[in-house]
């Protein structure tokens, strides 16, 4: 391998029953594909937590491939439905954090699709090579992006977001407590809204960890309109996560109360 060519490091999180078996079959069939992927076996794609995915990026992966059974084939009935929703959420939060969602790929690969496994890995390797190294890895990571990914990680650790994303599947298939089956777009919009709010709040807390800031200062630091920031500040104070540190003439300044959300 020549030094000048960038070789992305890809982590594959594969379910035991379909995708891992598909990767095995690629081997048995001797389908050659690039050496960049390293596979971690799980029992079910539904096991994969967005927190783990973001942690894997923080630790330095250039790309992640999550592999599950095709919809309908899940060994555990509907684990892949849950995986699908969690990856959707992770993509959305990556987008929000300005970290290219294309670095995370969800694929359904069956035990008989060895060729597809090889194709997908080749294609993903190619794509990631073109994209270049992950901005948050290595000796000199882009600290701004890294901060944003950390904020994103806190969002996917948040109770509200996790409760919503976990209930989405049943709400849109079996229905809610009133027997109503919710529109997928409707519930997804609700989740996106919640995600955006939580993300902004986490950013506010991270910005104000070391120094007290005014609403206006926060707004310009995280590039969110001041009225929205004020809204979040109020909510964060209610939750005792943010405190009024000082009032500079007529401008109140806020500081995080330490700890995460």
């Amino acid at each position: 391998m020549t030094k000048d060519k960038f070789e992305p490091r890809i982590i594959g999180y594969l379910c035991n029953w379909c995708s891992y078996a598909g990767a095995d079959l690629a081997g048995v069939s001797r389908f050659q594909y690039p050496t960049n992927i390293r596979v971690i076996r799980m029992m079910c794609s539904g096991r994969l937590d967005p927190v783990v995915i973001l942690e894997t990026f923080i630790r330095g992966a250039d790309g992640i491939m999550v592999g599950g059974c095709h919809i309908g084939d899940c060994h555990y009935m509907d684990g892949n439905h849950h995986a699908q929703r969690k990856i959707w959420l992770t993509h959305a939060i990556m987008e929000r954090a300005g970290f290219d969602p294309a670095r995370l790929r969800l694929e359904w690969i069956s035990a008989s699709e060895g060729d597809r496994f090889a194709e997908v890995v080749s294609e993903l390797t190619d794509q990631l090579t073109k994209m270049g190294p992950s901005p948050i890895k290595g000796e000199k990571p882009d600290l701004e992006v890294l901060e944003r990914i950390r904020a994103a990680q806190r969002v996917v650790e948040d109770f509200r977001i996790r409760a919503l994303i976990s209930k989405e599947y049943k709400l849109t298939t079996e229905g809610n407590v009133y027997g109503e089956v919710l529109e997928e777009d409707y519930i997804k919009d609700t989740i996106l809204e919640a995600m955006d709010a939580e993300y902004t709040r986490n950013q506010i807390l991270m910005e104000t960890t070391d120094k007290a800031m005014s609403v206006k200062e926060i707004a310009s630091a995280i590039d969110v309109p001041s009225p929205a920031v004020l809204n979040h500040v109020v909510r964060l104070r209610q939750k005792n996560l943010l405190t009024l540190a000082s009032i500079d003439e007529t401008t109140p300044k806020y500081k995080a109360m330490g700890g995460g959300m």
Partner: peptide, 10 residues
């Protein structure tokens, strides 16, 4: 042992 609950727990 599928682990879906692990990735779910709020």
């Amino acid at each position: 042992g599928c682990g879906t609950c692990v990735a779910t727990c709020p």
